[in-house]
Nucleic acid binder design. Structure first.
Length: 837
DNA sequence: CGCTCAAATCTTTTT
DNA sequence: GATTTGAGCG
């Protein structure tokens, strides 16, 4: 693929080739405490650069300081920066650190995950991207059920084409940047899969939904196929910074390439030894490609580790040295050897858990280690259960990351489906989820008939339902009426009120009231309403604020592009408007650059729910032991780390150990795990483990033997490698073969991921950051705005304000225009004038 | 048609 | 163990 924006903009170029105004040798205090390599990375000139940052080498610090430094030196304004991470957690952390470093308003920056940024871009240009303004995002559950539906519909053999596999195939294609037409077909099987891919694609388009991978692919194609949009962003983003570059997949790489214009500098930070996402398409090779294709002149290695003591680091180095596919890098530390790595062998998983708890108690009580500085890592989520049970028994506070997240819980997904139908009636996935939940007498037969009818008419289920006849028809129509009434009543209500309304009208709350175990679920539903309220309140200074361009090279977009739904003039106009906005407020998220039309708070909330599965940062302040998978631990660090379940078949996982590539990824995973520890590291394995409902007898993990013995202290006698007493473990088998009775009534189960019984696992973001007094909602001209007022819009004419949300000029207003219907407008962008109060 | 109970199946890691 | 499918009853 050719470099996209190959149009040379000489003006931009001149800006950068001219010598720096005054590289005043007076070093900024920003650089204090950085070592030579870190400082060099931070102060690199405006050019592409690759930073090979080993674990614990201050990667995030370099990244944030680089941004701060660029801003501080006046090299770029916040609006010219795009910083991309993989997880919401990482994005938040970067945001927080940067905020602490700079008094500057950093809201003009685009900072977020690949998916979050792509979503934002698609919302802003949904017409050009050929998506409805309210497109919904499918998570993996939704995607799988959509595919299942498709497979059933076309009578495909579910045995030969399991929905899950088809899903992996489709996502795999998308991650390579391939549409159905681009996939080479070799055999009958792949032909069928490609056909399903195409059918799936059509279905999504019809229903107005996109999956995760589609967010990226669509955004990439938007940039590739629309020169004015591409040019706009290329000129805007002078500095593109990428975290965890080793985890980018083909498509993400291509996306970055589209964004990087002639005047942009890409600053990529990565560590090939920490590449642990090859299973979902990550290509370490992107690092080499980047160097070659971007002609990277600046490469810096950060090898000084500031995190771990010597024995821990030596273990990590020795372990990773067993991998052959490496760029080569060795970490060193200035700290002492520290304590040895302790290894423990337990007879069973229960015994392992008991030992863990015991050891953690000692650490907490005798050594004064705060609980939140202790992490228990495991390879797969299933392993957390035993540990949780033991912890709950002991009374130690703990918190589990991952597992079932808030927005993935069944009751929440149901509630969200109702809300989604209010926004996007064509969303068949949501329709099917709740059409008969709670039960309304609409059974499989009725639904099948409806689907046939809808297909014949080429209509969404929702619309087709209106035309159904008979008993089933009556029931279906009353369901549609239910939604319509809800939508009607929702007019002018705040988001919180809409959610409350839905919870009542849908009958969800009532349904769960009748269930014996429904208490937790009702609590969660109520939590959803609170979360919605908090979302609106926080939106004003939400981290992912889309800012409009603040840079202006004075280059005008000239080509006639009205045909693409967005004219160059409109873009420029929006740029000007945003710059002229009072107080230099950036435009809020998801705003149409032309009219200021924006998503409704509901639509924005639904997006938020899809993109941040409730990745709970709640209780982050609480002092609790941290439980998570090794994958989830990347980027974190703790004083004390336990790596559990070090057994062949588990870690390395049996599904990966077959080929070298898989095994090496497992080893990198172990490397990541080890390097999370600052002071103390414990490794443990068991002779027998209850897995899939039956006992398994595993050999000790080979990784234990790849750690140098001089770093290790065995807490239990080291047995002679293989088998370490399989006979003995058999004896234990019966003893531990059954779950103890107390595991039943220990209050776990549904809310197992809850460290503090009685509180939902997820709760609204910390509200203490919110100002106590919220400024009244006002127009960009400073006029206060309330429901009932008559207003005038440049494009839409006269209208009446129905509702307002948010605060100050960050707010949104719902306006019913006489000629253009009801719209949500962003007050920072939309030119509204109050006609009559 | 809906609900309940029993059997069968499948279990890695995640935005 | 958890989730999904199937059979049988009201």
């Amino acid at each position: 693929m050719r470099r996209p924006g190959a149009v040379s903009i000489s003006m931009t170029f001149d800006l950068f080739s001219s010598p720096e105004p005054t590289p005043s040798p007076a070093p900024s205090p920003l650089l204090d405490g950085l070592n030579a390599e870190q400082a060099a990375a931070v102060t690199l000139p405006d050019a592409h650069a690759l930073i090979l940052a080993g674990a614990g080498s201050g990667k995030t610090r370099v990244l944030t300081t680089r941004i701060a430094w660029l801003l501080h030196m006046g090299r770029v304004s916040p609006g010219g920066i795009l910083a991309v991470t993989f997880t919401n957690k990482a994005a938040r952390e970067m945001q927080a650190r940067l905020g602490a470093m700079l008094p500057l308003n950093i809201r003009g920056m685009w900072m977020g995950t690949f998916h979050g940024l792509c979503n934002r871009m698609l919302r802003a240009h949904h017409q050009a991207a050929q998506l409805p303004a309210t497109f919904q995002i499918l998570d993996m559950q939704d995607q799988q059920s959509a595919i299942k539906r498709l497979i059933k519909q076309f009578g495909v053999d579910e045995e030969r084409f399991p929905p899950k596999q088809v899903m992996w195939f489709i996502n795999g294609c998308k991650e390579e940047g391939m549409r159905p037409g681009d996939v080479s077909v070799r055999d009958e099987e792949s032909r069928k899969k490609v056909e399903l891919y195409q059918l799936y694609q059509d279905q999504c388009q019809r229903e107005g939904v996109v999956d995760f991978a589609e967010l990226l692919l669509r955004s990439y194609e938007l940039l590739r196929d629309h020169a004015p949009i591409r040019d706009h962003y290329q000129r805007r983003f002078r500095h593109i910074l990428v975290d965890e570059f080793q985890d980018t997949n083909r498509l993400q790489y291509l996306w970055l390439k589209q964004l990087a214009g002639t005047g942009s500098s890409v600053f990529a930070v990565g560590d090939d030894d920490q590449s642990i996402y090859a299973f979902r398409g990550a290509r370490v090779g992107n690092m080499a490609d980047f160097v070659r294709e971007f002609d990277v002149q600046h490469q810096i290695k950060l090898e000084e580790n500031y995190r771990s003591h010597g024995h821990i680091l030596d273990s990590a180095n020795a372990l990773i040295a067993h991998n052959t596919q490496r760029l080569g890098k060795n970490l060193r530390t200035a700290q002492g050897a520290g304590e040895p790595v302790r290894v423990f062998e337990a007879p069973s998983d229960l015994a392992e858990a008991a030992w863990l708890v015991d050891e953690m108690k000692h650490l907490s009580r005798d050594d004064g280690v705060p609980l939140h500085e202790i992490a228990v890592l495991y390879r797969s989520n299933a392993q957390s259960r035993v540990i949780e049970t033991a912890l709950a028994q002991s009374g130690l506070a703990y918190r589990v990351y991952g597992g079932l997240r808030f927005f993935e819980r069944a009751e929440i997904k149901h509630a969200l489906a109702y809300l989604r139908l209010l926004e996007t009636p064509s969303d068949d996935t949501s329709f099917l989820r709740v059409v008969n939940f709670p039960a309304r007498g609409i059974g499989a037969r009725s639904i099948e008939a409806l689907q046939t009818q809808a297909r014949a008419l080429g209509l969404p289920l929702y619309t087709a339902a209106k035309g159904m006849t008979g008993r089933a028809g009556t029931l279906l129509q009353s369901f549609v009426a239910l939604i319509e009434v809800m939508r009607e009543q929702a007019q002018g209500l705040s988001l919180r009120e809409v959610v409350d309304l839905m919870l009542e009208q849908s009958g969800l709350v009532e349904h769960y009231r009748g269930e014996r175990d429904g208490g937790d679920r009702i609590e969660n539903l109520q939590e959803l309403a609170s979360a919605a309220e908090a979302f609106v309140r926080l939106e004003g200074f939400h981290t992912d604020q889309a800012a409009l361009p603040t840079t202006s090279e004075g280059v005008t977009l000239t080509q006639g592009l009205a045909s693409q739904g967005l004219s160059g003039d409109a873009l420029d106009q929006a740029m000007l408007e945003s710059r002229d906005a009072p107080g230099g407020q950036p435009a809020p998220d998801y705003v149409d650059l032309d009219t200021g039309e924006t998503l409704s708070p509901l639509a924005a909330f639904l997006t938020h729910a899809a993109l941040e599965a409730g990745d709970n940062q709640a209780q982050a302040g609480q002092d609790a032991v941290q439980l998570m998978t090794v994958h989830a631990s990347k980027g974190l660090e703790f004083d004390v780390v336990f790596i559990t379940g070090l057994e062949e078949g588990l870690f390395p996982h049996e599904n990966s150990a077959a080929d070298t590539a898989g095994l090496e990824e497992e080893r990198r995973l172990m490397y990541v795990a080890i390097t999370r520890a600052r002071q103390r590291l414990y490794l443990s394995h068991t002779q027998t483990r209850l897995l899939h409902g039956q006992s398994r007898y595993n050999f000790r993990s080979r990784f234990l033997d790849e750690v140098p013995s001089e770093c290790v202290q065995w807490l239990t006698p080291k047995s002679g490698g293989f088998g370490s007493g399989v006979g003995a473990s058999l004896a234990h088998g019966g003893q531990y073969g059954r779950m103890p009775a107390w595991s039943k009534d220990s209050g776990f189960g549904r809310s197992a991921s809850n460290a503090y019984p009685g509180q939902p696992a997820w709760s609204a973001p910390n509200l203490t950051n919110a100002p106590l007094e919220r400024p009244p909602v006002q127009t960009s001209a400073g006029q206060a705005l309330r429901a009932g007022m008559q207003v005038f819009h440049n494009k839409f004419g006269e209208g009446k304000v129905l509702a307002v949300e948010g605060s100050g000029t960050d707010g949104k207003a719902q306006v019913s225009f006489t000629r253009h219907g009801t719209k949500w407008l962003s007050l920072a962008v939309a030119k509204l004038t109050v006609v009559e109060t």
